[in-house]
């Protein structure tokens, strides 16, 4: 019987799922993803999680609860760092512990540590350890690891062509290997959406932000559509190197978009209670104001944000861009 590995559809799922899925399926396991976020999943997560955690972490708990009784083990890696000299949010590195101590009756948790801060090769160390649960053959593990990396590469290539990560994942699940032409997006304007993937691509949490924008005639681009080197170069314009990987991604992409001619405006989406987001929003706003370039909208999403408030702000932002255009 194939071992069922559960992956919560939350947090870094939106960044690394193809790699994880590739790795585990190559080792003969069956990968099961939690259902899409619903009110029920969120409510359960909020109830179970520690009070101080941010909304995305609470949601992660909900997804674990959704999965735990239908899988043989859960994959909750302790992700400390995904690149040299930069870190992931501290809440993520305590994730396996938080989950284990707050949710009773869990299946075994694969909580290997990914820490690439000193050496990028440490990634293999983590997957090598996880692989041992499935096979004693180091060659199979190595092969599965390579396959995972290839899948991740395919995923990122699809993103760079113009798909958004949740769309790329869906395409890959349907068997698409590669596509060279951009997906067609209708619209009268292009807006860049700057925010954590787990906020903006989870349509429940973001209150279907991307769908709403598209319905209003907006083409949406995100940091995922850019290459890593652009983000790195642009974020280096700050006087001091940022050591939060996710914050760097937001700032680097915002700095790129604010000087792209094709971008009509930038929307920054922050989670209420996210420390780094409060900084990134501020830094982006200051730089944009100094340049006097494209307009910026700051949105804060939270567990109890009314949808009407978001719609009002989006509508006003789009009206403003249309009005500006008409005046030119």
């Amino acid at each position: 019987m194939r071992l069922k590995v559960g992956i919560p559809r939350a947090l870094l799922y939106y960044y690394y799922y193809p790699m994880w899925k590739g790795f585990f399926t190559a080792l003969g396991a069956e990968v099961i993803v939690s259902s899409r976020t619903t009110k029920d999943i969120l409510d359960k997560g909020v109830k179970q999680a520690v009070d101080e955690a941010c909304l995305p972490v609470k949601l992660f708990f909900g997804h674990v609860l959704d999965l735990k009784d239908r899988v043989d083990c859960l994959f909750i890696p302790r992700i400390v760092s995904v690149e040299r000299k930069a870190y992931i949010c501290p809440k993520f590195l305590g994730l396996p512990d938080m989950v284990r101590h707050n949710i009773p009756h869990l299946p075994p948790v694969i909580d290997v540590t990914v820490n690439m801060c000193r050496k990028e090769k440490n990634l293999y160390k983590a997957f090598g350890e996880a692989g041992k649960i499935f096979t004693g053959n180091p060659f199979s593990i190595r092969k599965a690891f390579k396959y995972g990396l290839e899948e991740q590469e395919r995923f990122e290539r699809l993103n760079r062509v113009g798909f958004l990560p949740h769309e790329s994942i869906e395409k890959m699940n349907k068997g698409l290997v590669a596509q060279n032409c951009s997906p067609h997006q209708h619209g009268e304007m292009t807006l860049a959406l700057i925010g954590h993937g787990y906020n903006i691509f989870d349509s429940y949490i973001s209150m279907n932000l991307i769908g709403k924008l598209r319905d209003m005639g907006v083409r949406v681009v995100t940091a995922d559509n850019l290459s890593g080197s652009i983000i790195e170069d642009r974020s280096n314009e700050l006087p001091k190197r940022l050591f939060w990987s996710l914050g760097k991604r937001m700032i680097g992409s915002a700095f790129h978009f604010m000087r792209s001619d094709g971008i009509d405006g930038i929307i920054h989406v922050a989670s209420f209670g996210c420390g780094p987001d409060s900084f990134t929003g501020e830094i982006i706003e200051r730089h944009m104001r100094r340049r006097g370039s494209a307009p910026l909208l700051n949105l804060t999403i939270d567990e109890h944000t009314g949808e009407a408030g978001i719609v009002t702000r989006l509508e006003a932002f789009i009206d403003m861009i249309r009005w500006r255009r008409a005046a030119q």
């Binding site: 910026l296 009002t312 006003a316 932002f317 403003m320 009005w323 005046a327």
Partner: peptide
């Protein structure tokens, strides 16, 4: 110049 340049709520 008679056009909305920025807003906040």
């Amino acid at each position: 110049n008679g056009v909305v340049a920025d807003f906040a709520m």
